[in-house]
């Protein structure tokens, strides 16, 4: 029989709610970094400069083939040996942002490659510059097919934020651990963490699907 203590549950809830704020902030910031840097990674792999292309492609491959938690440790603990001393938040955001940037760059790449060749040719025939072609013609069309993948990684980064607890970012997992070691009760904090993740993940996933449909309509593209 589980001995679930409701009074204890209500006591720790406020602390966990505050920590939820940190989790959302970490996921949001990390995702923001990933969205932008991911685009840089994707575009860099399409430049005519083969050195850039190869370096970025290998970096993306490297990031995707090693565990996130290792990358977090690496940035936080190995950085200082090179004189780069970062706060847990900064190190965590860099690590998780770059990690997801690598994944998102692949999503973007797929989206960009799905844009028909004729669109590029039309842009050339109108004499649009390369930058204009990307930002006005290609990326808007690459977006709808990328949104599902982008949404998956938004939920993914959110679920990966507990890994930031290993370097002391005070997000949900870190807070639940702290509560556990203070009170020797683990059932309630961990259960609550699970419920909170569920309550955020599920609506987010549904929201992303609605957003996808809205973007397609907004861009005048029939789905």
């Amino acid at each position: 029989m589980l001995d679930w203590n409701w009074q204890f549950t209500w006591e720790i809830l406020p602390r966990l709610i505050v920590a939820t704020g940190n989790t959302l902030l970490a996921a949001g910031l990390g995702y923001g970094i990933a969205v932008v840097i991911g685009l840089v990674f994707a575009l860099a792999q399409r430049t005519p400069f083969s050195v850039v292309t190869i370096v970025v492609r290998e970096a993306v491959e490297f990031i995707r083939s090693t565990p996130l938690v290792l990358q977090i440790f690496f940035v936080f603990y190995v950085g200082p040996q090179f004189g780069i001393r970062l706060s847990p938040w900064t190190a965590g955001m860099i690590a998780i942002g770059l990690h997801y940037a690598a994944y998102l760059s692949e999503v973007y790449r797929g989206g960009i490659e799905s844009v028909p060749k004729g669109q590029w040719e039309a842009a050339t025939s109108l004499n649009l510059s390369t930058a204009r072609t990307y930002f006005r013609v290609v990326i808007p069309q690459a977006l709808p097919p990328s949104l599902a993948g982008m949404g998956n990684y938004l939920v993914g980064i959110f679920k990966d934020t507990p890994m930031l607890s290993v370097i002391g970012v005070a997000e949900l997992m870190h807070t639940a651990n702290a509560i556990g070691s203070e009170t020797y009760r683990f059932l309630e904090p961990y259960t609550l963490v699970g419920v909170i993740f569920l309550l955020i993940s599920l609506p987010t996933a549904a929201g992303i699907r609605l957003f996808e449909g809205w973007v397609r309509r907004k861009l005048g593209m029939v789905s």
Binding site: G118, A122, T124, S125, N127, R136, P140, L219, G220, M221
Partner: peptide
């Protein structure tokens, strides 16, 4: 290129 315009078999209008 600015002296030349082209129309394609499949139009290639920007769908968005």
């Amino acid at each position: 290129r600015s002296k030349i315009g082209m129309c394609f078999q499949h139009f290639n209008l920007f769908p968005h």
